[in-house]
């Protein structure tokens, strides 16, 4: 075993830390390391939360105010790294996580490995990266770089609250930055039903729907299956649905019992966000669409015909 000391960025989320942060703390613990969590803008309960997943120490930067946190967090972590050299810093693959990783990488003059979906403890820490739509896995490592910086995708590991201790909390004075961007206001988009990342069933739509109004079919099917509606990047970019619906590389990672892909061809960008689903149903006009290669059940057909028929059948059963 080569890993003995790992740091994990525990990204705050409405009084808690994100699920991905908990997954990373759990995995760091499973790798046999002493785990330090680093957080900011969190509440008083976080030392207990990160402790329960296996962190023995929590560095808390406190409230950073209404700014994008990357610059200040990276500055502060860089200064903490002057006193101690962990084997690696594990960072959740979120918008802020990616920004922090980029800043920290440049500050430390050390490369960063992103889109990590697995870690292996060999002679040095090695990371797994899915490529080509997840058909292949690249195993990578950093040369002569301590600490290694790894940006890890959501749901790569399970979050298991096996520790019972409260992490030892130490307040850290944030190292300020002149490079900050200020958040003027936050806007929340309404959504009903189960959260996309937690839903047992996800029904997603793509370009094959034809037009924005047909997304209502996806929402209706999701509702009938007690699921959440999702989307490919193509239709988010086209403005049909908000970004919060996006499944894929730059969106959410989902691992439902059932994933229904409606009019989605299966670009790499999309597949890496949903290929962990236990069952995949695909409906697509193109018999050669890549999505069929990872589907348990495929219907080659027009979603405009299949979805209304399916919705009628499900309503008749209700």
């Amino acid at each position: 075993m080569s890993v003995s000391n790992l740091w994990v960025l525990a990204e705050p989320a409405r009084g808690d830390v994100t699920t991905t942060s908990k997954e990373l703390i759990s995995e760091a613990r499973r790798l046999g390391a002493t785990v330090t969590a680093i957080t900011w803008g969190a509440n008083d309960d976080v030392a207990r939360v990160v402790g329960s997943y296996g962190a023995s120490r929590l560095w808390d930067l406190g409230d950073l105010g209404a700014i994008l946190p990357a610059s200040v967090v990276a500055n502060t972590v860089a200064s903490l790294l002057e006193g101690e050299t962990p084997d690696a810093v594990l960072i959740p693959a979120s918008n802020d996580g990616r920004d922090i990783a980029g800043r920290l990488s440049a500050r430390l003059d050390t490369p960063v490995l992103t889109n990590v979906t697995g870690l292996r403890d060999g002679a040095t820490l090695e990371s797994e990266h899915p490529i080509f739509g997840g058909t292949h896995t690249v195993l990578a490592r950093l040369r002569d770089s301590a600490p290694g910086l790894f940006v890890v995708r959501a749901k790569s590991f399970s979050a298991t609250p096996d520790g019972v201790d409260v992490a030892l909390r130490e307040s850290v004075t944030p190292v300020t930055s002149s490079r900050t961007a200020t958040i003027r206001s936050s806007h929340v988009e309404e959504r009903n039903g189960p959260a996309l990342e937690d839903a047992k069933v996800v029904v997603s739509g793509g370009r094959g729907l034809g037009d924005a109004s047909s997304y209502a079919l996806v929402e209706e099917l999701a509702r009938l299956l007690d699921g959440a509606p999702g989307a490919s990047r193509a239709i988010v970019d086209a403005g049909w649905v908000p970004y919060s619906h996006q499944v894929g590389q730059t969106g959410k990672t989902v691992k439902p019992d059932l994933y229904v892909a409606c009019g989605i061809s299966g670009a790499t960008q999309h597949m890496v966000g949903m290929k962990g689903a236990a069952n995949v149903i695909a409906i697509n006009k193109d018999p050669d669409a890549p999505i069929f290669a990872i589907s348990d059940f495929g219907v080659v057909g027009d979603v405009q015909r299949v979805l209304p028929a399916l919705i009628e059948l499900l309503k008749a059963r209700a």
């Binding site: 050390t110 490369p111 490995l113 090695e126 899915p130 490529i131 997840g134 058909t135 292949h136 896995t137 690249v138 195993l139 990578a140 490592r141 950093l142 040369r143 002569d144 770089s145 290929k275 290669a293 990872i294």
Partner: peptide, 12 residues
């Protein structure tokens, strides 16, 4: 300073 150790077929 990053290197690929190997490329494996993923279990799909």
């Amino acid at each position: 300073r990053q290197e690929v150790v190997s490329v494996e077929l993923a279990a799909t």
